[in-house]
């Protein structure tokens, strides 16, 4: 066991090319997923907070429920969509990083949308009389509230990023864990552990843990900064 830890430390310190390639792909996929999911989830979450429409309650319940969407179910759905016989099969995305971005975005979307809805709803309670008085329409209020809640939203996005980087089942199904193509940290850890290659698994695990810690430290730091500067 001691040798495995020593080997893992060496891989990290030496900047092993395979290790770095896996980490780089993981970050690319997860950051892209957060970006694309947020493009849609932020305005959708804000719109659900501000507009009242038939079935709004059901949409909120659904969004909240989908925050716990099992990754393998998301993976299966995206697999069926992207497989050759599926409706999007002609795009040829299955077993590519793009498919992994799609499935991670699907997992992140409800988290970002639901947390955004709650944050915007709370801000709207506080601001709505003043914004209405100033002549702000609900549509115009969306960017205003998203901007004023920007520090809370950073935490929301980091939560989405954390979900993406920690996920294994969905990316395994749609990515196929192909070395050098779709192999990311979590799928590599699962594979290398089963192969008995504990050095690489431990090194990736350490990097994943470090990333998780950094994400939480950033969330905490951003929150503290927000309190000091604007609250």
């Amino acid at each position: 066991m001691g040798d495995a830890f020593a080997g893992a430390a060496w891989l990290v310190l030496a900047g092993d090319a395979v290790l770095l390639g896996i980490v780089q792909l993981s970050l690319q996929v997860s950051l892209s997923a957060v970006f694309f999911a947020s493009l849609l989830a932020l305005p959708v979450g804000a719109a659900i907070a501000l507009y009242h429409f038939p079935g709004r309650g059901a949409v909120i319940v659904l969004l909240n429920a989908l925050m716990g969407l099992p990754p393998v179910v998301a993976g299966l759905l995206v697999y069926l969509m992207l497989s050759r016989a599926g409706p999007l099969g002609s795009l040829g995305l299955l077993f590519t990083p793009a498919a992994m971005v799609v499935v991670q975005a699907l997992l992140i979307f409800p988290i970002v949308a639901a947390l955004t809805r709650q944050m915007v709803s709370d801000l709207w309670d506080e601001y709505h009389e003043q914004l209405t008085s100033l002549g702000t329409s609900r549509l115009r209020a969306i960017p205003t509230l998203l901007w004023d809640g920007r520090f809370s939203l950073v935490t929301t996005l980091l939560a989405g990023f954390g979900r993406a980087t920690a996920e294994v089942g969905a990316v395994l199904i749609v990515g196929g864990n192909i070395a050098g193509v779709t192999r990311v940290m979590t799928t590599s850890i699962a594979l290398e552990t089963s192969k008995g290659n504990l050095e690489l698994a431990l090194a990736l695990g350490a990097i994943l843990m470090t990333l998780t810690l950094l994400i939480n430290a950033m969330a905490f730091g951003v929150g503290e900064l927000a309190k000091r500067r604007y609250e």
Partner: peptide
């Protein structure tokens, strides 16, 4: 009346200021 409101202004008991 929305246009009317835009020609008026209101200041509240507790000022509601943006986080800016």
């Amino acid at each position: 009346y929305t246009a009317v409101r835009q020609r008026q202004a209101m200041v509240f008991q507790r000022p509601i200021l943006l986080r800016r």
